[in-house]
Every structure is written in C-alpha cells, then in structure tokens.
C-alpha cells in the first residue's frame, strides 16, 4: 500500500498491466520520452521499450483506428488522447468502427481497446482542452464509458477496462490528477465496470455525480448537513452502462435526486439519469429531479471558468430546492 494521486495510480495500473500481459501496449502523442503531458505514462518507455510505448505521429484518427486493428489482431492497445476535446478528431473511428465491429462481424471479432483521455475544467487551459463530452459516447452503443474520481478507483477501473473484451473510453478528471492522495493497494485489483459507488451515505436526498464533480457533491453534502439535510452521494464511475440498481435503490430510500455534471446541460447524461429514475422510482419521488450542470455554451475562457462550472453553492441550492419542493 502506498499513498498515491490519481495520476500515480493510473501510471501504476498501466505498468502492472504491461508487466502482466505482453499484449498490452500504450500509444499516443508524447506518451514515450515525455511520459505523457500529465506524466501518466512516465517511466514506461524505459521499462517496456519503444515497441510497447509508442510515440505516434500527431493523428488521433490514426491512433484509434490503428488501435482497432491492433486489438482485433490480438494486441491490447491502451490509446491516449492527449485531451478529451481532441477526441473529436477520431469520433468516426470510435463511433462507426470501434463500437460496431462486434456487431458488424456478428461476434466474430471484438475490440478490446482502452482509450484514455483527461477531461474537465478548473485547470485554466486553452480552448478545447477542458470539454466534457462524455454524453456523445454514452449515446454510442458498443463502447463503455468509465470515469474514476479517486486514486483507488482509477487503478482498479483502469485494470478492469484493460481486461474488458469491449472498447472502453476511460476519461480522467484532469483537475483531480494531483488533488489528493489515498491508499492504493500495490497488487493487482479490479473495480468492476458497471458498478456505481456510494461515496457518502445519507437519507433525504440522493446526489449523483461523476469524475470531477464527485468532490463538489461530497462538499455540498457536508454543507447540507449543517442545515440538517442528510445527503447520499453516488459516484457513478461507469457512465455507460449505468448502474440503475444502485441509483434506484438510493432514490427509493431518499425520495429526492439531484444530478450534477460539468458537461453542458442540454442532451447531457443528467437527462438520461433523470429519465431512468422516474422510470424506476416514480412512486418514491417527493420532488422533481434537478440537474446542476454546465451552461449550454462552449467551455468558457479561464476568467469565467469558476463561475461557469457547477460548484458547491449551486449543488446545495438544488438540494434545498428538492427538499423544500
């Protein structure tokens, strides 16, 4: 056991996966000598060599498209997209290829591919570097979408993603990369894909969040308790497929739900979660399901970022609104 940050936990998971399975290779822009722009792949080139830690030419579609072939051909590629916003370059290879090969080939071929990408705001980046566009992929059958919010889950989920027989988009909350440390087991372990985590137990309101919004939701829960409201926080961890069981059980207990995401509001995953809740827990609901989200604009310039992003105050306000509906 060692106390690791999220970025260190990811680095450790990659190293262990490569150690254990010679088919695993890491490819992407600046992942080799530079160790990735966030150092997620630091030290891997020295340990595993240029055949397995590949600085690719600057071409996202080539990274993902060739990974599809590598995966079908028997390798276990872990592709890095330097920032989630640049995944637009390879939407086609993900949406029409990686996600559909199993279906197209009627099960003859499958694509055990992991695509990693840092995402989210709060880091004062240039344009496109902070986008949260997970909903596009949750809306694409055939690819799973996973996002950790803690070092422990980062390692366990990444190892599970690498073991998964289907393509997994693994998005990493950039602002939490080095935000805190926690105990992470040295040995191999997996956190199952498709299982949410109760980050904090509570009785009156369920707040559902993922990735960078989990600490915001947890803080809001602490503040809400000061005014006597007991909040349960669910960290979804897997955005597709959703863990409806955990969500439903929680809302059946609390009777109220707030969904928090950094991504823009309209067409966001919050709408899917809300729809699922009213389908499965309608009779338990004491109030409409509320959403706290980014606004329907492109991600703003750094000077406006803090106001634009959902924060504790907005989440607390939504908690109070559903309490006093």
């Amino acid at each position: 056991m060692a106390k690791l940050t999220i970025i260190q936990a990811i680095n450790q998971a990659l190293a262990q996966a490569m150690e254990q399975d010679p088919r695993v290779l890491v490819l992407g822009e600046d992942v080799g000598k530079n160790g990735g722009v966030f150092r997620a792949t630091d030290g891997l080139l020295e340990r595993f060599g240029e055949q397995r830690v590949v600085d690719t030419p600057l071409a996202e579609s080539a990274i993902v498209g060739s990974s599809v072939g590598l995966a079908i051909g028997g390798m276990r590629p872990v592709a890095e997209i330097q920032f989630f916003g640049f995944i637009y370059e390879t939407m086609d290879q993900i949406g029409t290829q990686a996600a559909r090969i199993r279906f197209r080939s009627q099960g003859r071929y499958h694509v055990p591919l992991v695509i990693r990408a840092p995402y989210g705001g709060g880091v004062r980046t240039p344009e496109i570097h902070s986008d949260s566009i997970e909903a596009f992929f949750a809306h694409s059958p055939g690819i799973k979408v996973v996002t950790p919010s803690t070092p422990h889950d980062a390692k366990g989920l990444l190892l599970a993603a690498i073991q998964d027989p289907d393509p997994v988009l693994f998005i990493e909350p950039m602002r939490l990369y080095r935000a805190f440390r926690e105990e992470v087991p040295d040995e191999w372990y997996e956190v199952p894909i498709g299982k949410a985590r109760i980050a904090k137990e509570g009785e009156q309101v369920t707040v559902i969040a993922w990735g960078p919004m989990v600490p915001v939701a947890e803080q809001a829960a602490v503040q809400a308790l000061e005014s006597g409201i007991s909040v349960e926080v669910i960290d979804l961890r897997t955005l597709s497929p959703l863990d409806l069981e955990t969500i439903t059980a929680s809302v059946q207990k609390t009777g109220r739900a707030v969904v928090v995401h950094e991504a823009v509001r309209s067409g966001g995953l919050g709408a899917e979660v809300a729809a699922a809740i009213q389908e499965h827990a309608f009779l338990s609901l004491e109030a409409p399901i509320m959403r706290v989200t980014g606004y329907d604009t492109p991600f703003p310039v750094p000077s406006v970022e803090d106001l634009w992003l959902p924060d504790t105050g907005r989440v607390v306000a939504a908690i109070q609104a559903v309490m006093h509906y």
């Binding site: 106001l307 924060d311 105050g313 907005r314 306000a317």
Partner: peptide
C-alpha cells in the same frame, strides 16, 4: 442572479 447574490456560496 447567482453573480448578484455573490457568486458561488449560496445555501
């Protein structure tokens, strides 16, 4: 409205 109410901290 949020900004008028002092930005972030509310509730």
């Amino acid at each position: 409205q949020r900004i008028q109410e002092g930005g972030t901290a509310r509730g």
